[in-house]
Amino acid sequence: MIKNPVLKDKGFLLLMDRFKEPMYWHIRRLVISHVDAQDILQETFINVYRFSAKFKGESKLSTWIYRIATNECIKHFRKNSKKKNSGIITEKLIEELSGNDSENSEAIVMKFEKAIQSLPEKQRIIFNMRYYDELSYDVISEVLNSKVVTVKTNFHYASQKVKQYLSDHA
């Protein structure tokens, strides 16, 4: 429907309704900040609208959208890492997690999120996609354009590091 110029807008809205929430949370878990997540989510779907005609259907639509969203996140990380105060930004993000600690949220969840945030970029992306979105290794490798073995290895290391962080901060 989205490929048809007449029905493009309607198709786009249907697509957004289907994927906006999972994509938002995928992005939000990676960038933490709501404002950044909102911008990246919009940028993702603007790209979906722009390149919808080029989607060949070689992969699943969800995989394609995941790839666009993840690439936008990576672009965001690169942009932030170029800034002189990138270390301060990371600290602020971790603080933001602490700021979200309401009475209902458990301390362990917060610690867990901090542990994920402390992971290297690639491991963090893989861990989030595998743990929260429950994507298969095949899909993750397709999204990140890397080998399944690499994805598995990265996930394993990420899990180890998270466990280590939790035991260190117990």
Binding site: D17, Q38, Y49, I108, V109, F112, S159
Partner: peptide, 29 residues
């Protein structure tokens, strides 16, 4: 081995955020 944590999150989103975003994004696109 993170079963006890599950998928809980401390991240929050304002109510009604997802309602207007589709039209807004379409207009921007």
């Amino acid at each position: 081995g993170f079963e006890e944590i599950g998928k809980k999150t401390t991240l929050k989103v304002t109510e009604g955020f997802f309602e207007g975003i589709s039209i807004d994004t379409l207009l921007k696109a």
